[in-house]
Write a protein that binds this DNA or RNA. Structure first.
Lengths: 151, 151
DNA sequence: CGCTGTCTGATTGTGCGCAATTTATTATAA
DNA sequence: TTATAATAAATTGCGCACAATCAGACAGCG
C-alpha cells in the first residue's frame, strides 16, 4: 500500500490524467475553429457570444449582459466599445439610473443576425462526436457550470 | 413545415442551445478556480500546465513542449522567459541544432513538483459531478480533442 | 441637507492566445 | 558550392480575461 502510494505520488499531476486540461485545450481549439465561419461577420468568438445574447434577449444593461455571457466589466467594457465603434450596438445611460448602461442593438446589429444563422451550420461537424455524445457532453457541461455558479 | 422552419430560424443561435458556450464558460471558470490552489506556487494555470509537461517528460524542445500543451511559440516564448526569470527552468540552444531551444527544469523547478502534488486534491470537488460523470466528461473531451487534432 | 455606504461601470496592469511576420539556422538541390 | 527552401523560435499586433482599484451615482439615515 505504502509502496503503491509512493509509486503513484506524481500520478495526479500527469498531463494525461487531467480532466481540466482537455477541457481547457478543447475550448481553445473550438474558439479557434469559430474564426473562419465568423470572419465574414468580422466578429471574434467572444463578440459573437455577446451578440447572441443581445439577439436573444434584446436590450440589456452591461451588468445583465455580463451575467448572461459570464464576462466582467474589465472584458466587457472595451469589447462593447469596439462593437459600438462598428455601429452594431448603442451604449446609453438609463435616465432613471445614470449608473446603469443600457446596451441595445442598432439596425445594423440586428441585420447581422441574418448572417449569423449560418455559423452553427458551418460548425456542425467541428466536433467529431455522435449526436448522442454531443448531447451528453452538453448536458455534463451545463451541469458542471450550474454547479460552479451556485457556489 | 415552412412555418416551423420560420419559427425556428434563430433557434440555432440561442445561447442556451449552444454546446460551445458552456464548454468555453466552463473552461474559463475552472481556470479561474485553479488560481487559489496555485497561488502558493505563484503559477498561472497555463504555467502549471507547462510545468506538468516538464515534470512528466523531462527536457523538451520548445516545439515538443508546444505540442504537449497545445500552445504556439507566440504564447510559449514569453511564458518560458518568465519561468526562466524565476529560476524554474533553463532555456538553451542545442549544440547539434542551434535552431532548437531545449527547455529543462532547474533544481528549483524540480522541487516545485513536491508542492504541486497538492493542487489536484484541492481541485477535487471543483466540478460538482459524480465520479462516473467526471470520467464520462473526460472521455468525451479527449475524444473531441483527438478528433480535432487529426483534422 | 449632508454623510455614509452601496451599486455600477470604467480603468489599470499582467498574462495569455494566436495569426502573421521576421530572423536565424540547417537542409537540399542545382 | 552557392542559391534556395524548409525549420524553429522570436517578435508584433490585437483582443480577450480577470483581479484590483477607482470614480461617479444613488439610497437611506441622522
Amino acid at each position: 500500500m505504502e509502496n503503491t502510494h509512493t509509486a503513484d505520488r506524481y500520478e495526479a499531476i500527469r498531463l494525461r490524467n487531467q480532466l481540466c486540461f482537455p477541457l481547457y485545450a478543447c475550448a481553445k481549439e473550438v474558439v479557434r475553429r469559430y474564426r473562419e465561419p465568423l470572419s465574414p461577420l468580422d466578429l471574434t468568438y467572444t463578440q459573437y457570444v455577446v451578440m447572441m445574447a443581445l439577439w436573444e434577449f434584446g436590450s440589456l444593461t452591461e451588468g445583465e449582459l455580463g451575467e448572461k455571457v459570464r464576462l466582467d466589466s474589465g472584458t466587457l467594457a472595451p469589447l462593447l466599445k469596439r462593437l459600438e465603434a462598428r455601429g452594431l450596438i448603442s451604449r446609453e445611460r438609463l435616465c432613471t439610473n445614470e449608473r446603469k448602461l443600457l446596451i441595445s442593438l442598432t439596425e445594423k446589429g440586428e441585420i447581422l443576425k441574418e448572417e449569423a444563422v449560418h455559423v452553427p451550420e458551418a460548425m456542425r461537424d467541428c466536433l467529431d462526436l455522435q449526436e448522442e455524445e454531443l448531447q451528453q457532453l452538453k448536458q455534463l457541461l451545463d451541469k458542471a457550470l450550474t454547479g460552479m455558479t451556485s457556489r
